[in-house]
């Protein structure tokens, strides 16, 4: 049975710097989390949505609508975009946070971040080049039709090389790869961790106006609507199998 006071699951402290397979985690019991895994199976941040102010509620709830068709990326680019977003956020099954749609909407609306590296193209062109480069590497290195068609392990290897700026040839020659990784990840992380499903996964209390938070610690940090990290094992089974804390 997992003990969240322990730190054995943290990648930096493991020999391969890889986390355990998500199967060690409980299934989400209330609400939705990405891939239905999480640490707070009986916490649904949306249970407090009626306490949010109207402006915040409309912004957050809009993320739960069915995703609209892509506007910025072309049908040719779409499979690569989706495979890239799935790989970097480890979203291998439904339900998925619609990260590709978030990125597409940001770029289509021109909501850029307010700076552009002198040795880099516009962020929109950076995205196009990265997708092109991922296809290029998948083709030349693995003989796949494109990045989306490559095996999941090969896709992860390519992304790892992107994260370490170990790619070259083709479109990569036009990019400072470390900066391109940063441009892409800024948008992807903002898309994933702005979604209430991700807040369920991590146990984040979410918006708190006008209600506010009253339990700051040190004795308790949990509001009435929040839940502690927990597992979904049947406690009876856990005791029978000798997995409990006694």
């Amino acid at each position: 049975m997992p003990d969240f006071r322990d730190h054995a699951h943290l990648p930096n402290l493991r020999p391969d710097r890889e986390p355990p397979h998500p199967s060690w985690l409980p299934r989400q019991e209330v609400g939705i989390s990405p891939q239905m895994v999480g640490r707070y199976p009986d916490f649904d941040v949306l249970s407090a949505a009626d306490t949010w102010d109207e402006a915040t509620k409309s912004v957050v709830m809009a993320r739960l609508k069915d995703p609209a068709p892509l506007r910025f990326f072309t049908p040719d680019q779409e499979p690569t975009l989706r495979a890239f977003c799935d790989t970097v956020m480890a979203q291998d099954v439904e339900p998925r946070v619609p990260v590709a749609e978030f990125v597409d909407d940001k770029l289509a609306a021109g909501r850029l971040d307010g700076y552009q590296y002198a040795d880099m193209p516009d962020d929109r062109d950076t995205w196009r080049l990265v997708l092109h480069g991922l296809d290029h590497t998948a083709r030349t290195r693995y003989g796949a039709a494109g990045f989306a068609e490559a095996d999941p392990e090969n896709r992860e290897t390519i992304v790892d090389d992107l994260a370490h700026a170990h790619l070259d040839g083709g479109p990569w020659e036009e990019l400072n790869i470390a900066r391109a990784w940063s441009v892409c990840m800024r948008a992807i992380l903002a898309g994933f961790y702005s979604h209430p499903w991700a807040w369920n996964e991590i146990g984040f209390g979410g918006p708190a106006y006008p209600r506010g938070f009253m339990r700051l610690g040190p004795l308790s940090t949990t509001e009435p609507f929040e839940r502690h990290g927990s597992t979904s094992e049947d406690p009876v089974d856990a005791v029978h199998q000798g997995l409990g804390h006694g």
């Binding site: 699951h9 943290l10 990648p11 710097r17 890889e18 986390p19 355990p20 998500p22 985690l25 999480g38 640490r39 790989t87 970097v88 956020m89 480890a90 992860e156 992304v159 994260a163 990840m185 961790y193 991700a198 996964e201 991590i202 146990g203």
Partner: peptide
């Protein structure tokens, strides 16, 4: 990134 990112974020 990927699974390690998700693990830390959880």
């Amino acid at each position: 990134w990927g699974r390690a990112m998700r693990e830390y974020m959880r």
